[in-house]
Design a protein around this nucleic acid. Structure first.
Length: 312
DNA sequence: CGCATTTGACCGGCGC
DNA sequence: GCGCCGGTCAAATGCG
């Protein structure tokens, strides 16, 4: 038996170097940071990374163009009214709302359980194989966000155990796989760096925590202030920068923020070290008009009571 | 000593 | 059918 050359040494091809703009020098970098069309073309797989496989790629660009704070002012009201429930969410994506459009979630139909196979397999690969076949891949909804950070593994209040690392095709940076250490919790996350800018960390969460965070965040006030900010982004009533002064975020708070965003079920695009953009991964708004966004049943539609939407 | 990380191997999915 | 690739496992190793 020959082994495959997986071991993580294989893919080291370098790809284009300047897909991203010079966000470091821009005031609000979001529009400049990611040219999603370029990324898409480059086969990096960011879209896959973001879980947007094959659908609505273009909308990402729209999103980056339209979800700036300066534009948010024009968008719908009632965001602040809906943020409090959010605040109480455990630090995990709201799977019910996110999963709906996730291409992986669609795989539910494949989750047939094979009837029991041979019970007494030798306790190694065979058993493993049987186990894998029994519970065929049932993908949890995933969402991703990007963080400009020197640190790969962002602190989100949960404890993670690294269980793997792979080289990423077309990227010199490896991808790390983490799993929540809590016994019954099946949440996973992947962390990798953008191949075009090593300071950008792409974190992809999969699954939902079944337990509260074991570590309370150091700065709970930040957490409190964050949820409204996030909602503001999604729903557009408030100005994010009003509620969350991202420029002054300490490094660790930035990380925490990133992960709190993630826990709220928002994909996040972040250009400068402290800027923030978030959106539900599987419901990227294509239309800058918020009403369209809401009507298009974004994540907020699951969060915001329907009567609130009517009042808009 | 217990837990986390590293890393080579393996497996399944998918495209060709 | 074959090969590539992403994802995961698990033994070895490191660390507090």
């Amino acid at each position: 038996m020959e082994k495959k050359e997986m071991g993580g040494v294989k893919t080291e091809e370098k790809v284009g170097s300047s897909l991203f703009g010079d966000y470091n020098s821009n005031s609000f970098p979001l529009s400049n940071v990611f040219d999603f069309h370029e990324v898409e073309r480059s086969s990096l797989g960011f879209m896959e990374l973001l879980g947007v496989q094959g659908q609505d790629h273009g909308s990402l660009l729209h999103l980056s163009q339209h979800l700036f704070p300066s534009h948010l002012n024009n968008q719908c009201a009632a965001a602040n009214n809906c943020c409090e429930p959010l605040n109480q969410q455990p630090a995990t994506p709201n799977s019910s709302s996110i999963s709906s459009a996730s291409s992986e979630a669609v795989m539910d139909e494949h989750t047939k359980t094979v009837d029991q196979r041979g019970d007494e397999q030798p306790k190694t690969k065979n058993q493993l194989k049987a186990k894998k076949t029994n519970q065929k891949k049932q993908r949890e909804p995933r969402f991703a966000f990007m963080t400009k950070s020197e640190v790969d593994h962002l602190d989100d209040g949960y404890r993670w155990r690294k269980y793997g690392q792979k080289a990423v095709k077309n990227s010199p940076f490896p991808r790390s796989y983490y799993r929540c250490t809590s016994a019954s919790c099946n949440v996973k996350k992947r962390v990798e760096r953008s191949f075009t800018d090593s300071t950008i960390v792409v974190t992809t969460y999969e699954g939902q925590h079944t337990h509260p965070s074991p570590l309370m965040p150091r700065n709970s006030t930040l957490a409190g202030a964050l949820a409204p900010a996030v909602v503001s982004y999604g729903c557009g009533s408030g100005n994010l920068s009003q509620q969350y002064h991202h420029e002054q975020l300490p490094h660790h708070d930035h990380h925490f923020l990133a992960n709190t965003l993630s826990s709220l079920g928002f994909t996040r695009i972040c250009g400068s070290k402290s800027s923030i953009a978030a959106f539900p991964q599987d419901r990227m708004p294509c239309n800058p008009g918020t009403s369209a966004f809401l009507r298009d049943h974004g994540l907020l539609q699951d969060i915001i009571p329907s009567h609130m939407l009517k009042e808009e």
